[in-house]
Write a protein that binds this DNA or RNA. Structure first.
Lengths: 129, 129
DNA sequence: GTCTTGCCTAGATGTATGTCAAATTAGAAG
DNA sequence: CTTCTAATTTGACATACATCTAGGCAAGAC
């Protein structure tokens, strides 16, 4: 689950470059790749959602019920629910109802893909010095 | 300038936990940390800005002039300029005018910090299984 | 059955954001 | 100085987003 596969970036490297064995392993993101990736970053581009993600990840057992999360914010329950929905629709978290409570947990594969895209591992943003 | 210091994440791990050597090295993000980090992700939470960053990083010499970037989009020059300004104000890129042209290059330290926050390296989002 | 609690949905509202056209600054060339 | 090109700033506009209140649905307690 915690593998980093980054298939999207590989799809963008279509070797349409010149020919020779230059160290130019860098291919910029295509428009479709960018359109697909941007919503993932938009999902975590909010202080509340960043903290929600962190609270879920750091909660014991790797999962947290909504009642564990609302207390950390000065926001109403519907607002928290809205942010959780945004994270879930982006694929960053999953949820399940067990009895009275609904539990959320992190999808580590998506986060790993995002991390490797902007990280020093990724050719798309590596320092080309 | 290109050092990766990530002081914010370290500031969050203040070892206020119990005592014993349990593998619970996870401390959720504080509100102030989240407020400071969210704008960084918001800066790249746009397809145009993701591609701009990628185009700059992949350009030869690690820098690109604006005229190298505008051709990749169906957008007007002011719009590209706006997005470059957002990236620069977030600290993700820097720029310099040399004669007629303005050149942009990536600030790799900030991207590395963002990557390590959401990556498997960071305790804040590590799988706690 | 009724009541309570936990969570979500729907609608409304104010703010933020992406985009463009027009005007502006900065440098180079005539 | 004038003119041309490169890039940004300004102002306007439509859309998207974060938040709230009010209401709805599910599960358990009585």
């Amino acid at each position: 689950m915690s593998k980093q596969e980054l298939p999207i970036i590989d799809a963008g490297v279509d070797a349409s470059g010149p020919a020779c064995c230059a160290p130019l392993v860098c291919e910029p993101l295509s428009e479709s790749e960018a359109v697909e990736l941007a919503p993932l970053f938009k999902a975590i581009a909010d202080p509340v959602r960043l903290r929600l993600l962190s609270l879920i990840a750091c909660h014991e057992g790797g999962e947290a019920c909504v009642c564990d999360l609302t207390g950390a914010f000065d926001l109403t329950a519907p607002t928290i629910s809205h942010h959780l929905k945004v994270l879930r629709q982006a694929g960053l978290i999953d949820s399940e109802r067990r009895g009275t409570w609904v539990y959320y947990w992190i999808n580590p594969g998506v986060l790993a893909r995002m991390s490797s895209l902007i990280g020093p591992v990724s050719p798309a943003f590596a320092e080309t010095v």
